[in-house]
């Protein structure tokens, strides 16, 4: 192979790399469209009660008041890196369902109220989140480490449990599945 041919081959390789690399990066960093639910003894059972004051507004919040709508219960903490990844997705999900078809309810896991509130402001989270004194809510939901998320059906039953970051599309797919099952 002549020097000219070698240079042409290298140049072609570089061009291909330049074209392919952005796609590869985009695909690698894009949130997955599907998320996998994991087992939980709570699935198929009534969701344990959640109530408290919203970290951002101070107004009273309770899971019971969302009866009749899908609710995404998300356990998070400011010190949890994956929570930072999923927060924009949850905010996007909350915005998508601003008509009231579904709600997001955050629960602080082992974190100070002030730092958790700062975390929500920083990540753009506008959905209500409550503090969990005595870890009662976390124990009731069997939390092993944030982020953990539960999907609660309009009838108040837990339909799915996710261990790790969730995505808007993934949550939507589980809601669609639950609706198909008549929940």
């Amino acid at each position: 192979m002549s020097n000219g041919q070698k240079r042409a081959l290298i140049a072609a390789g570089v061009v291909v790399a330049v074209l392919v690399l952005p796609f590869a990066i985009a695909l690698a960093t894009r949130p997955p469209a599907t998320i996998d639910a994991v087992a939980s003894p709570l699935v198929g059972k009534p969701a344990p009660q959640i109530s408290g004051k919203s970290l951002l507004t101070g107004s009273p919040v309770s899971l019971a008041e969302y009866r009749g709508r899908f609710v995404v219960v998300n356990f998070f903490a400011s010190w949890c890196d994956p929570c930072g990844q999923e927060a924009p997705e949850l905010d996007s999900f909350a915005y998508e369902h601003r008509d009231g078809s579904a709600e997001v309810l955050g629960v602080v896991f082992q974190d100070e109220s002030s730092t958790a509130a700062q975390f929500l402001q920083k990540t753009g989270g506008t959905y209500p989140a409550v503090q969990d004194p005595g870890s009662k809510i976390a124990i009731d939901y069997g939390i092993k480490g944030p982020p953990e998320t539960f999907l609660v059906a309009p009838n108040g039953m837990v339909v799915a449990h996710f261990d790790g970051p969730v995505t808007r599309l993934g949550l939507d797919s589980y809601i669609a599945k639950a609706e198909r099952e008549g929940l």
Binding site: Q110, S135, A138, I139, I143, K144, G145
Partner: peptide, 19 residues
């Protein structure tokens, strides 16, 4: 629940203390 195979009695984390 948030530790690796140690009991609630042995752990100093907040959830264990709350439990």
């Amino acid at each position: 629940p948030v530790c690796n195979d140690i009991s609630v009695a042995q752990s100093e984390v907040k959830v264990a203390s709350d439990m």
